[in-house]
Design a binder for these strands. Structure first.
Length: 572
RNA sequence: GGGCCUGUAGCUCAAUGGUUAGAGCAGGGCGCUCAUAACGCCUUGGUUGGGGGUUCGAGUCCCUCCGGGCCUACCA
């Protein structure tokens, strides 16, 4: 039994995530975790909310809540939504946890001890009226290059010129509008990534099987310009992990916190510790997933993330781990995704554009979304969500191919034999042919799942569903019943067993429906079909079942049009 | 500006440099009547964005042009 550690990129705390966020990390990670579990592996699937940084403080200020309360509340909201989508985290932690405080401070201390930290004194813009230093992008003004009056301090969106905040004409705070800005001197810690460039570069080069998207982004950062740059890992904010050197005070760093991108990946580890705490387990129980000297040497660690997260996971976090000089587990495989776009534009949390997780669950069950998103996962390039495509795909795949298959065989059985697996008849040529084809396709499905080829796995699974309809059409029990009822019984028995088989195979994609299918078949036998012939005999003669409700109601044209209108603009 | 990704049927996508570029959906025809007007079979549909080059052979490699997207280090 292999051991698999799986992490999904941490969703940021400042609001409800949209479908693009979901499909870029949490959902495919869940697919993989569920698959590996059902294949008998020991799995630790970890996620958490990412709670620090300026946007969290501003979001809290907007609602009038203290930031700690805001984060606690939003963590609760996101936890419920994760549950609603069937995300099977072993633990959904918080980057603001005490575990993460201690670990982040520990890593900083180790990095300092190993001379991978340097102090840098720099000048930053301070907004007197806001009472805070402003990140470059929170300063607005007129672009000196093109005259655009809403240029940001890091870049002008209009002419794309890169800017320094001090370049702006009439600079003002993007938060309050205040022009009462001054440049102040402040001191920060930098992680000397440049000193680790060689090691990180060699490590990336050794990953021959990683997606091009992952390695090309990493190489770009490693080799662009002067190569990998040192990175500031502290900020002048109130909300965050106080800068400490291990458990010691860090002279000169009083009142400062670690940069959110320094502590967020460490939360993968901390969240596993939170899991142990929540389960009443010992430290050794989480450390065996992370410390190669305490049991993690045989762990396979896979990370899932959108492409925007790749630099921090290929460079920053590995630099932290390598630089610590301690035997923490480095990631073995990074599965990265492009973006899902919405009707030709971008999904946007800040602009409220697109479909958000709460809206999605309000209008349709989770499995509709899981199936569409995973079968259209943006693996080779950005992919687009349109209501038309969504309606067509879901109706065809789920309602017609799978749902209707379950419906037709259970209802036929009920009308001819009752709600019980019928007796009689033996397999003939058609049945052995079906089993051969099923076996071939299930093995292909396993390969795609193992390789995290999400779309191909979905297509293969769909193909397996189709085999059921093909079989029924050829076998035609409604015909054979008239001349050879025993043969019809055998055909129906096989059909009913296919439902159970499909429930098991489909569980990683559509777990709720899978449960409903098993419930209808009144069985909890969910072993993986290593032997298809045996798997198709799980429901024995005389076993009672229930004809289930329609598994997937179709999306009507009226619904599609209504949703198209409803989600057209921006939401408040 | 620089870098990376991408462009294949009406749509969404496949195709270690190697038969005649394949699937699903949509469209057309036939069949079936168990089923959510569902299912099955057959079928139409391509100058692989344009142009050059390398090769016995290019969707695939090289050059160039055009279109789309992303990143470019203080948002996360």
């Amino acid at each position: 039994m292999a051991r698999h550690l799986i992490t999904s990129a941490l969703p940021y705390i400042n609001g409800i995530k949209h479908l693009g966020n979901l499909v870029g990390s949490q959902l495919p990670a869940d697919l993989y975790a569920r698959y590996l579990r059902t294949r008998g592996n020991e799995v630790m699937f970890i996620c958490a909310t990412d709670e620090h940084g300026t946007p969290a403080e501003l979001a809290a200020a907007k609602t009038g809540e203290p930031v700690a309360e805001y984060c606690a509340r939003m963590h609760g909201v996101q936890t419920e939504l994760a549950r609603g989508f069937g995300l099977s985290f072993d633990h959904y932690g918080r980057s603001s946890s005490q575990r993460n405080h201690a670990l982040t401070q520990h890593f900083a201390g180790r990095l300092a001890d190993n001379d991978y930290i340097r102090e840098v004194s720099e000048k930053q813009v301070y907004s007197v009226d806001d009472g805070r230093f402003l990140p470059d992008r929170y300063i607005e003004g007129t672009c000196p290059n093109c005259g655009y009056d809403k240029a940001r301090g890091d870049q002008c969106e209009n002419c794309t010129k890169q800017l320094d905040p001090t370049d702006l004409i009439n600079p003002h705070s993007a938060i309050s509008g205040s022009t009462n800005l001054e440049v102040r001197e402040t001191k920060h810690l930098y992680l000397r990534q440049s000193a680790l460039k060689g090691e990180i570069s060699d490590w990336i080069d050794s990953k021959k099987d990683w997606p091009i998207l992952t390695t090309s982004i990493a190489r770009k950062w490693l080799n662009d310009g002067d190569g990998l740059q040192d990175r500031g890992i502290t900020r002048d904010l109130h909300w965050g992990i106080p800068v400490k050197r291990g458990q010691q005070a860090w002279p000169g760093m009083e009142g400062k916190v670690f940069y959110v991108w320094f502590d967020a990946p460490i939360e993968y580890i901390a969240s596993t510790a939170e899991w142990a705490d929540a389960q009443g387990k010992a430290d050794a129980d989480w450390r065996r997933w992370w410390r190669k000297d305490e049991g993690a040497q045989d762990v396979t660690y896979t990370q899932f993330m959108g492409k925007d997260n790749v630099p921090f996971h290929t460079l920053g976090f590995p630099a932290t781990i390598i630089g610590s000089g301690e035997p923490w587990k480095l990631v073995d495989y990074i599965k990265s995704f492009n973006y899902l776009t919405y009707d030709g534009g971008q999904f946007s949390t800040s602009q409220g554009r697109g479909v958000f997780m709460d809206d999605a669950l309000e209008i349709l069950p989770a499995d509709y979304w899981r199936w569409w998103l995973l079968s259209h996962a943006p693996e080779s390039g950005d992919s687009e969500f349109t209501w038309d495509n969504f309606q067509q795909s879901v109706n065809k795949d789920l309602a017609d191919v799978l749902g209707n298959f379950v419906s037709r065989i259970t209802k036929f059985c009920r009308s001819k034999f009752g709600e019980v697996v019928p007796e009689g008849g033996e397999y003939g040529r058609e049945e052995t042919a079906l089993i051969d084809t099923l076996t071939t396709r299930i093995r292909a499905y396993e390969d795609f799942m193992q390789a995290m080829e999400v779309r191909k796995a979905a297509a293969e699974l769909r193909g397996i569903w189709v085999l059921g309809n093909e079989y029924l059409q050829g076998a035609a029990p409604w015909s054979t019943f008239k001349t050879d009822p025993e043969k019809a019984a055998m055909q129906v028995r096989l059909g009913l067993n296919l439902i159970r088989l499909y429930a098991v195979l489909s569980a990683p994609f559509i777990p709720f429906t899978s449960d409903a299918m098993l419930a209808a078949m009144q069985t909890d036998i969910s072993d993986w079909p290593d032997d298809v012939t045996a798997a198709l005999q799980a429901l024995r003669v005389g076993h009672a079942f229930i004809v289930p409700e329609v598994l997937f109601a179709k999306i009507t044209d009226e619904q599609r049009e209504e949703w198209e209108q409803r989600f057209k603009g921006v939401r408040a």
